[in-house]
């Protein structure tokens, strides 16, 4: 992910500790059968979010003030399933990839 935060919101609203909302991007397109490109979705979504108004007319709120933390993307893409891989090894791999 090139984009580091959702909708370009101020840093005080994008920290994990104080955020009520967490976004997890999964840029994965391992099994689509017709038009490809779903893996490009998260980056396109985040990029577009930077140019969006933060006030919501219908609910009369600014939801980002609840805090929105953008988690590290899940990028495991070797296979749709990996049942054969021992659980601890998988978990270690995930922890290694994340900084939290």
């Amino acid at each position: 992910m090139q984009t580091k935060s959702y909708a370009g919101i101020p840093e005080e609203f994008s920290k994990l500790e104080t955020s009520k909302i967490v976004l997890i991007p999964v840029p994965y397109d391992g099994t689509s059968t017709f038009q490809k490109g779903a893996d490009k979705g998260p980056e396109a979504f985040l990029h577009a979010s930077e140019n969006m108004e933060l006030y919501d007319i219908e609910t009369e709120t600014e939801v980002y003030k609840q805090g929105v933390f953008l988690a590290e993307a899940v990028t495991e893409a070797s296979s749709p399933k990996r049942w054969w891989m021992p659980y601890t090894k998988r978990l270690n791999a995930i922890l290694k990839r994340t900084s939290l």
């Binding site: 009520k20 909302i21 967490v22 976004l23 997890i24 397109d29 689509s32 893996d39 994340t98």
Partner: peptide
């Protein structure tokens, strides 16, 4: 696992893909 990790922290978790 990634989803579980944040539910455990009591967050409102949203996942976006991807297919």
């Amino acid at each position: 696992q990634a989803t579980k990790r944040y539910i455990k922290k009591n967050k409102f978790v949203t996942i976006f893909g991807g297919e």
